[in-house]
Design a protein around this nucleic acid. Structure first.
Lengths: 235, 235
DNA sequence: AGAGCCAAAATTGTCGACAATCTAGCTTGC
DNA sequence: GCAAGCTAGATTGTCGACAATTTTGGCTCT
């Protein structure tokens, strides 16, 4: 669902694969935030020339996962609390829009699939409440579906190709366990219901409240676990 | 105000300059929508190697001004009516947010500057009502200021670095004259007033209505002047 | 004559080497 | 002893050439 391109040996270009690999490494915390990305060492690590590697870095910069300065180099973005709040503000607005559009535009079969996905998540949470990883992944799945359901291609691009990668990085960075999983699941249920009833206005309002709650949770967590400007080198 | 980098011979990298030049050429309609961008001819036209040129193309792709397919090449985005509507939907949401945040976060001096900018625009419109170009440029100036006034760095990046270039391209493409200039100016005045009174809720509502009106205007125009899939070669 | 296939040309992707720039460590002077 | 300037090393930016893929033109076959 992400960008299924990885590990296909010849269907894409080298730069595509390197891009996907580094992105995964960054988003999953394998390469630490603030870490410098040296072109020679990455080129050797992925056994490619600096050409495709530079293209990959440029694309990582485009989705704001790394920052580059001319003649200096690239670093993984370092995450601050205010940037997290900024991200949540935008997500609240855009995903609210997505929910409203989805309620108006999603096909009946897509709604049914969304409902079954939700049922799966419910079962999964009931089964193994401890498995935080798959719960957060399920959360992403849910949001991805809604956004795609909106049908607005540019909205899909902004959220799924740019902001979600950053949001995932933040979650990994601040170690967001899913204490909120059961509450989030309940909120998801309400949103799906609103979409199923084609009530766009309600779906938007519920989605905005859902993300606002998630933001509050994150803010609280940061307050206890204050900003740690990680700058450790690449493992 | 755009990205003042052009024509500075050595302060930036080659790729930066080529990027800015091609972007300007595309946004101002010098290179037609749908037109193919051949790397060799562009490299010769700007007297650079294909290396920096490819970087520029990649950055143009990142802001969605061109589309690339592997082993095929790059084309300037072709504009459809539905994409225009998609863009307006997102702008309505995001700029509404920007207006609300600006009302809460802008400094008093920034508000004063915004008011004087508005006065300038009023004078300009009263003086030479025919000069459509500067009016639309003034319109962009206004929106740029509000967005920057929000203080949300990511919001600024999404709107000013990505969506606005596309929107400008659309305006050039569909030849949006400013019959709406005087109405738009009146709406701008209300928004500035709301911001000056620190009424974020009202500012958001007014901004959304302003963009909605602009969208309706564009839709009407497209209806009379239906989609012309331009595909003429580079001049 | 039209459709399908093959080959050549052009274009894109990739690579290695060179030049310009920045960083770090050392020397030198106060 | 500390700060400023300089030199050496490493890193990034740029270039030209080669390899792989796509496209186009012509040819053959039905």
């Amino acid at each position: 669902m992400l960008t299924a391109v990885a590990s296909n040996p010849d269907s894409t270009t080298l730069a595509d694969r390197v891009f996907a690999q580094i992105r995964r490494a960054i988003v999953e915390g394998e390469i630490a935030p603030g870490c410098k990305l040296s072109e020679p060492v990455l080129a050797e690590r992925f056994t490619v020339s600096r050409g495709p590697l530079r293209e990959a870095l440029r694309r990582l910069e485009a989705i704001h996962l790394i920052e580059r300065k001319a003649n200096v180099g690239a670093r993984v973005v370092s995450l601050s609390g205010v940037q997290l709040v900024e991200l949540y503000q935008i997500r609240e607005t855009l995903e609210g829009l997505a929910a409203r559009l989805a309620a108006e535009a999603m096909t009946d079969t897509a709604v049914a699939e969304l409902q079954s996905l939700l049922a799966e998540h419910r079962a999964s949470v009931a089964r193994d409440q401890w498995q935080a990883y798959f719960q957060t992944e399920g959360d992403w799945d849910f949001h991805y579906r809604i956004v795609h359901g909106s049908g607005n291609q540019r909205l899909i691009a902004i959220l799924c190709d740019d902001l979600y990668h950053l949001a995932r990085l933040y979650r990994c960075q601040f170690g967001m366990k899913s204490e909120r999983a059961t509450a989030a699941l309940k909120e998801h249920g309400l949103i799906v219901d609103a979409i199923a009833e084609r009530d766009g206005e309600l779906a938007e309002w519920l989605m905005r409240r859902h993300i606002r709650a998630s933001r509050r949770h994150a803010e609280q967590r940061i307050a206890h676990h204050p900003i740690q400007p990680t700058m450790r080198p690449v493992p």
